[in-house]
């Protein structure tokens, strides 16, 4: 048997919803993984030609250069308001926002909470890398106590800078959201679970369930001043205890 000649079939390839483009993300950045997961889910649900996304301000502001779908670019933190306006005008189309921790949990926390409280029927993908990536690694609302950043050079001091916001747990106090989950893209095993959560959120939206939210713990090697390997290890050691993984809220009937 000539093994090299054996017929092979492609079992993993670039999803259709992603353009064949090199991203501007740094090596080892979790945005690229999460982009692919969202794109795979879009493909699998057959919604590439109907979905509308909202890009944030931050590292992923240019995500519309990578996704081959209709997209808005928001201003900093306002993606949930834009998604609300659009979804109210086009309730027939699936809608998602993709936001980082500075965008969502600092400047846009009001828009986030109220979209969740109203039970807006879109999905939010929330990238939590505990820092402001695009502007060069400043302290974010999700920066851990003691974590060194450009604006907490000796480590986040809870006496002066307070404590990190657990967005999932906070949103879970609201009645309207139907699905709130926290996942990680720090290893292939976690990536598989992350995709399940993202898929579930989109499927619930398609079924008409209100506000669905997936927080993705994501490495930022550059602004953490680590190698990609160190970054995923640091994430699992330090972020997992602060931000426990799993479904914080889910509808009783499954997808």
């Amino acid at each position: 048997m000539n093994t090299e000649a054996q017929e092979m079939e492609r079992i993993f390839e670039r999803p259709r919803a992603l353009r064949s483009a090199t991203t501007h993300y740094c090596p080892g950045c979790g945005h690229g993984i999460t982009h692919r997961l969202v794109a795979e889910v879009i493909d699998e649900l057959g919604i590439r030609e109907t979905i509308v996304g909202v890009a944030p301000v931050g590292c992923s502001v240019l995500m519309y250069n990578y996704f081959d779908i209709d997209m808005f670019e928001a201003s900093h933190g306002r993606a949930p308001a834009i998604a609300t306006g659009f979804k109210r005008a086009r309730p027939d189309l699936p809608v998602f926002t993709y936001q980082g921790d500075g965008d969502l949990a600092a400047i846009g926390i009001a828009e986030t909470i109220h979209a969740a409280a109203r039970g807006e029927k879109f999905t939010t993908i929330f990238i939590n890398n505990a820092t402001y990536g695009m502007t060069g690694g400043q302290m974010a609302p999700t920066t851990l106590v003691g974590q060194k950043t450009a604006t907490s050079p000796t480590g986040r001091n809870c006496e002066t800078a307070g404590y990190p916001i657990k967005v999932c747990e906070m949103l879970a106090t609201l009645d309207a959201p139907s699905y709130i989950a926290r996942v990680s893209v720090s290893s292939a095993k976690h990536v598989l679970k992350a995709k399940q959560a993202i898929s579930k959120a989109f499927q619930l939206q398609l079924k008409g369930f209100p506000y669905t939210f997936v927080e993705v713990l994501s490495p930022c090697p550059t602004d953490w001043h680590m190698t990609p390997q160190e970054a995923v290890e640091w994430l699992e050691e330090n972020m997992f205890p602060q931000y426990p993984l799993g479904e914080v809220k889910a509808p009783k009937e499954g997808v």
């Binding site: 949930p80 834009i82 306006g85 009001a110």
Partner: peptide
């Protein structure tokens, strides 16, 4: 928020 809802609906 309201002006960005306008942005979204106008879009």
């Amino acid at each position: 928020a309201s002006i960005f809802m306008v942005y979204g609906a106008a879009g």
